[in-house]
Simulated assay, not measured.
Amino acid sequence: MPQQSLAGLLGKKDVVTEYLVNRPSLEVITRQKRIKAEIIFKDGTRRFFPCRANTKEQAVDEILHFVDCMQQQTGQSVVWCFAGEKKFYIGTNRPTTNTKGIRARLFDYFFGLED
């Protein structure tokens, strides 16, 4: 004889199990991955710095502040990169972005004035 719950014996419905069977599907809110920076010191030790920022531009400010503090404390230059990328930056130099589009670069290549 299978075991029945007290609610089943009394002929009442169990609210919790009924809800679990018929529960509505919930949309899962996914959080974006945190931006992490890999900091490499002169002796070869590596540290990962998770940023609180949501965008890469804001994360650069946090990383540069952290790198500046580490350089002042250790007295050595620090190399850093975003985790998973192969482009490294030295010290507190702000990474530059290429602002020219491909059309402007092609135009400068073919028709640019030489000094």
Rank of each mutant, 00 (worst) to 15 (best):
residue 62 E to G: 08
residue 96 T to P: 00
residue 112 G to Y: 08
residue 110 F to S: 04
residue 58 Q to K: 13
residue 96 T to G: 04
residue 81 C to P: 00
residue 74 T to Q: 11
residue 56 K to H: 10
residue 70 M to V: 11
residue 64 L to A: 06
residue 66 F to I: 09
residue 98 N to I: 08
residue 95 P to G: 06
residue 62 E to V: 06
residue 80 W to Q: 03
residue 59 A to W: 04
residue 93 N to I: 12
residue 65 H to V: 13
residue 80 W to L: 05
residue 110 F to K: 13
residue 81 C to I: 00
residue 72 Q to F: 02
residue 66 F to W: 04
residue 55 T to Q: 10
residue 63 I to M: 09
residue 87 K to A: 09
residue 95 P to I: 03
residue 78 V to I: 15
residue 77 S to Y: 07
residue 71 Q to P: 00
residue 84 G to Q: 04
residue 86 K to Q: 03
residue 107 F to T: 11
residue 74 T to M: 10
residue 85 E to K: 12
residue 66 F to S: 02
residue 89 Y to T: 05
residue 75 G to M: 09
residue 95 P to K: 04
residue 98 N to P: 00
residue 98 N to H: 02
residue 65 H to W: 08
residue 112 G to V: 06
residue 84 G to S: 08
residue 58 Q to R: 10
residue 110 F to R: 08
residue 89 Y to G: 00
residue 80 W to D: 02
residue 103 R to G: 01
residue 83 A to C: 01
residue 110 F to T: 09
residue 100 K to V: 01
residue 57 E to W: 04
residue 85 E to Y: 09
residue 105 R to P: 01
residue 98 N to L: 11
residue 82 F to C: 01
residue 80 W to C: 02
residue 61 D to M: 08
residue 95 P to Q: 05
residue 70 M to Q: 15
residue 70 M to H: 05
residue 106 L to S: 07
residue 112 G to I: 07
residue 69 C to N: 13
residue 99 T to R: 11
residue 97 T to E: 10
residue 57 E to G: 09
residue 59 A to R: 04
residue 103 R to V: 08
residue 85 E to D: 08
residue 78 V to H: 00
residue 76 Q to C: 12
residue 99 T to Y: 01
residue 76 Q to Y: 13
residue 75 G to L: 04
residue 80 W to E: 01
residue 55 T to E: 13
residue 102 I to G: 00
residue 89 Y to E: 09
residue 79 V to W: 00
residue 95 P to E: 05
residue 85 E to R: 13
residue 55 T to I: 10
residue 82 F to T: 02
residue 111 F to V: 09
residue 60 V to K: 10
residue 112 G to D: 07
residue 79 V to S: 11
residue 58 Q to E: 15
residue 61 D to N: 14
residue 105 R to D: 05
residue 87 K to W: 01
residue 82 F to N: 00
residue 87 K to D: 03
residue 88 F to W: 08
residue 78 V to N: 01
residue 102 I to W: 03
residue 93 N to S: 13
residue 103 R to E: 04
residue 96 T to N: 04
residue 70 M to E: 15
residue 105 R to C: 09
residue 57 E to K: 15
residue 104 A to Q: 15
residue 77 S to V: 12
residue 82 F to L: 14
